[in-house]
Simulated assay, not measured.
Amino acid sequence: MKTIIVGTRQSTLALGQTEQVVEQLQRISDEHGLGCNFEIKKIITKGDRILDVTLSKVGGKGLFVKELEQGLLDGEIDMAVHSMKDMPFELPEGLVVGAVPIREDARDCIITRGHRSLDELPQGALVGTSSLRRASQMQHYRPDLRIESIRGNIDSRLRKLEAEDFDAILLAAAGLHRLGWQDRISAYLPPEICLPAVGQGALCIECRGGDAFMLDLLSRFQDASTALAVRAERSFLGRLQGGCQVPLGAFASVSAESSGGRPLLTLTGMVGSPDGQEVLKESASGTDPEALGLLVADQLIARGADRILAAVRE
């Protein structure tokens, strides 16, 4: 048997989704006679340690992945399971995305007292989120809402909704789905109101670029449509040099229709000011995911997105 050490953060969600990945990889290994045995190793990241500061103020990229990547580079783990939305555009030399499995629901959702929808919240309701992207779009759609930062894992944020004065909190639906907590969701936020983060709902399985065995195993776990969509979104991210410090979102869908035998993608991207006064959106379609991401980013830059992002970074 070949033992594969799988690195993950230690939150309830990270462990839950890693266990699901390991279960599926074990099935693949057994079906193909690869003789794998998986062990999970928990690693604490900078983003997990600093919980009293908003993500936009912690600074730096890869807040939830750097320690896992160091574990890969040092040979302490053989693969790492990340939420794709946590991944910086550039990976360290020697590391690659080994697989992007099928995507969960990419939408954001709202959890409220009394299972009210966003439109049913009273004037001046207090809404908690750790995301500048969500805050910007919420303030744009409902300027009357009071937005406050709320950090912590999903379970701790849900507890804060009950224990503190929040009327609602905003979360990624995918995490609640993976934990089997869909019943906590009061309403889903359509992308027209709240465009998701780049890669939201998708996982990234990272490994060493020279590990032929891992690359072969993970290639059997790849979902082609999800990988294409994520490539377009991450191309958009790279062009705008985005991260969790800026209000930026993107979502790509893959059409069953094709052009010249290639799947057709439609990508929508957004950049907004933190106060929601400006929210810019552009959409385009194409068959080349990288070119499509650059096109939508450049359309936004032409409308002033670079000015908005520069002001946020300053």
Rank of each mutant, 00 (worst) to 15 (best):
S11I: 06
E206C: 14
M87R: 11
F64N: 02
P289R: 06
F236Y: 04
E162S: 02
L121F: 12
Q10K: 15
I111M: 12
M138G: 03
D167C: 09
A125C: 10
A252M: 03
G71Y: 07
H32L: 08
S283F: 05
D165A: 14
E192F: 03
E19P: 00
I193C: 00
G60Y: 08
T3P: 02
E93G: 08
I193V: 14
D223G: 02
S258E: 12
L126N: 03
I193H: 01
M214D: 00
Q123D: 08
G47P: 03
L118T: 06
E257L: 08
A311R: 14
I102L: 10
I5T: 14
A227H: 04
G124D: 06
P88Q: 13
Q24L: 06
S186F: 08
R27S: 15
L240A: 08
C194R: 02
V296T: 11
L294E: 14
K57N: 01
V97A: 03
D183N: 09
A302F: 06
V100S: 09
I43T: 05
G210N: 15
R239E: 11
T129A: 04
K46E: 15
V58M: 13
A163E: 15
L13E: 15
G47T: 13
L91F: 10
V279K: 06
V6G: 01
R208Q: 05
V254W: 11
G304N: 03
Q10T: 11
E192T: 10
V246I: 13
I28P: 01
K41T: 04
I147S: 04
G33V: 03
S117E: 05
G175K: 07
G98I: 02
Q26V: 01
E257V: 07
L132F: 09
Y188Q: 03
G60Q: 11
V246Q: 12
G201M: 10
M79P: 08
A229F: 01
F64P: 00
L126S: 03
D167E: 13
G199K: 07
A250T: 10
D86S: 13
S273I: 05
G33C: 10
P92Q: 07
Q20M: 15
A224S: 12
G152Q: 03
Q10E: 00
Q70D: 08
A284F: 06
Y188C: 01
L161A: 10
D216G: 13
D306S: 11
T226D: 11
M87I: 14
V97C: 10
K85V: 04
L179E: 10
P92I: 04
H140D: 03
S285A: 15
D306G: 13
P122E: 04
I28R: 00
E162L: 07
E162N: 11
K2W: 10
L171V: 09
I205A: 10
V100R: 13
L161I: 02
C194V: 08
D211E: 09
A297N: 12
L300M: 07
D167W: 05
R151K: 12
Q24P: 01
H115A: 04
I169C: 09
A212P: 07
E76G: 09
R178L: 14
G286H: 07
R262E: 14
I308T: 05
Q137K: 02
Q245S: 09
T3H: 01
L309G: 02
L55A: 12
S131P: 11
